[in-house]
Amino acid sequence: MSFKHLFMKSSFVKAPIQNGIGRYVGQLQRITVKFCKEHSDSKGVRDFIENQVVDFAKQNPGIVVYLKPRRHRAPHVKLEYLNGETEILSAKCLSERELRQWLEVARGSSGEPVARLRKMQHTDRPSIQGVWTPWTNVPPQTNLETFPSEEGYRAPQREQTATEKLRELFARQQEQKQLTEETTGTS
């Protein structure tokens, strides 16, 4: 999601108290439709009321539907959710179909204000094996060490030093010498 919204808050993915695990509680509790009986702005709302509102109320027994005619006012729908949030949906010049679709959106909504999601995933169990700590995978003998340790943390000598090379050379030479002495001594 973009970061360019000045007034949009950010949040993480969440569901209202484990909703949907075991049972589902619809979060939309009440809709109040205000419309005008005469003006053409309310045409779509009037059509919705005429054709669909009874079915909508029957299909969603958890949602209370109020209808309030208001003379010469722009039509709108007030959506009230279980968490106390309210939302005003302007229905001005909406068609019947569009209004129905917006109500479907509201029906599935948790009522939380629209926010930029900081992460697209969430888990209550971040790790099965346990989250990392500074003491994870540390060899247990570290507990018995006293710091600073003199020898244990020196850089390893990877190549043979000149001293070692010389010693090896000398040892080989001595061996050779001994061998020749033995052979000459026996023969």
Partner: peptide
């Protein structure tokens, strides 16, 4: 030098290995 005050040294639980051979 190697003289570190005891109240600092008692926190130390780890040593960083050296980079070069002494």
């Amino acid at each position: 030098d190697e003289h570190v005050s005891e109240d600092l040294l008692r926190h130390v639980t780890s040593q960083i290995p050296q980079l070069r051979v002494q």
